[in-house]
């Protein structure tokens, strides 16, 4: 799964101008998360057209990178997230960040996460019968 990582200065109106640029160009945002300190933030987005979004943002002087992340389907019921995290913990994998959203297409919740070891994460998930989602699965 591809994610947009955007450098954001903590300045008034900065987030709006990024989101506005994307919406003006018909980019659909499915999920968003922000990590920040007092001076900077990184905005992480899951969008329908990653490459187009990147090109548009770059044109507008916004620093952006495309990052590979894991998108893991999960049921929209209590205990689902804890089950997933246990799989990682049992395999000694640490989570760097995560956020979740509900997708219309696969009719359930999706956990977006970056771990310290993508390959091991995938095989640990597969062993438990879970397949990470591709871009096409969601859009």
């Amino acid at each position: 799964m591809k994610q947009l990582s955007i450098f954001v200065e903590n300045k008034f109106g900065r987030a709006y101008s990024i989101i506005d640029t994307l919406s003006a160009n018909n980019i659909n945002i499915s999920a968003l998360s922000i990590a920040d300190t007092s001076e900077y933030g990184i905005m992480r987005l899951i969008v329908d057209d990653c490459e187009k979004a990147k090109a548009i943002l770059k044109e507008n002087g916004i620093m952006v990178k495309i990052t590979d992340v894991l998108a893991i389907p999960m049921g929209n019921t209590p205990g689902e997230l804890s089950k997933l995290l246990k799989i990682f913990t049992d395999s000694m994998i640490s989570v760097e960040y995560m956020y979740a959203f509900v997708s219309k297409k696969n009719d359930g919740a999706v956990l977006v996460t970056k771990t310290n070891d993508t390959e091991n994460s995938i095989s640990a998930l597969k062993k438990m019968g879970i397949s990470p989602l591709n871009h096409e699965d969601l859009f």
């Binding site: 300190t37 900077y40 990184i42 620093m63 990178k65 760097e96």
Partner: peptide, 18 residues
């Protein structure tokens, strides 16, 4: 000004650069 090479996905690496 942030450059491609200086920008990493992690907030910690931005702080490290700073």
């Amino acid at each position: 000004e942030m450059s491609e090479a200086m920008f990493e996905n992690e907030i910690i690496s931005i702080e490290k650069t700073e």
